[in-house]
Design a protein around this nucleic acid. Structure first.
Lengths: 144, 144
DNA sequence: AGGTTGTTTTGAGTGATTCAAAATAACCTG
DNA sequence: CAGGTTATTTTGAATCACTCAAAACAACCT
């Protein structure tokens, strides 16, 4: 289990719940708290509140990254500190990683920073995923 | 009143509530539903639900744009269809418009579109506003 | 093994928003 | 400009996602 060390290094205790949550996010990136709960509920009995709790702790420790696309509950992923972006399907909510924007450097600089100290540029691409394009009527809206 | 025509053109009936909401957003861009409610509550008696209702209708008609920054209720603004971006203060939640990203064209193209039909690139810059930088301890967190 | 401290559990509570039915107001038509 | 149709607002309840707090429990250090 490679996650034990990560938890240790972050100063967090190694618990079954945390390992299970990390594992779930490893196999299903961009999961919501509810998704994670469904995934871990099989192997240990816990509650959605505990999953939120764990996700918060892991986020605070920067072991997971929390993203909050519009019209969706928060999603979580293991890829942290690599400033990648996301591509979100407007129909089914599917999310894909986008490693880096082409010509990324300019994107980090707003045209007018209004005196702000800007530390991050978050880019979200919105569109239609292949499945929803192919099947415009009966696509999987229920995922959303 | 310049909003009457906009409503008409969008096929919406002209009501006091809608005019008041548009007016409120005109003088206070990036307001939340609650902010708008506070603003219009003086001139007509309505409810927060009605304000949500109106904001939803106006958003659907593309007369207002809804933005949903993380850790914040939805915000609304009158600037639509000009693909501008936002600069958000992590401390107090203040939002400023960013007309366009320097070298914007590349930003609209993900490095890998995963087969998606990408229609929009949304950019959010996160940072600290001048006020919160100047006053790190007692800055206006209550706005958030 | 035992004690301390961090973590999870449980239950309740909150904020933002949606839903649905009834009441009402806009607007079109004659 | 009265009347009817349809859109809109009201009201009240409900939902979703999430937080909070106290008590029970488990990890980890020695």
């Amino acid at each position: 289990m490679p996650y034990r060390k990560a938890l240790r290094d972050a100063g967090l205790k190694v618990t079954l719940g945390r390992l299970a949550v990390l594992d779930a996010l490893g196999s299903a990136p961009h999961s919501s708290a509810e998704n994670v709960f469904q995934a871990v509920a099989g192997q240990l009995d816990t509650s959605i509140q505990s999953v939120h709790n764990i996700l918060n702790d892991l986020s605070a420790a920067h072991l997971v990254r929390r993203i909050e696309p519009a019209h969706s509950p928060a999603r979580y992923e293991l890829r942290v500190a690599d400033n990648h972006h996301h591509l979100v399907c407007r129909t089914c909510g599917r999310i894909e990683d986008v490693d880096c924007v082409v010509g990324s450097a300019p994107c980090l600089t707003p045209s007018d920073d209004h005196g702000f100290d800007v530390s991050e540029a978050e880019v979200t691409f919105w569109g239609a995923c292949p499945a929803c394009m192919a099947n415009p009527t009966t696509s999987d809206q229920e995922k959303k």
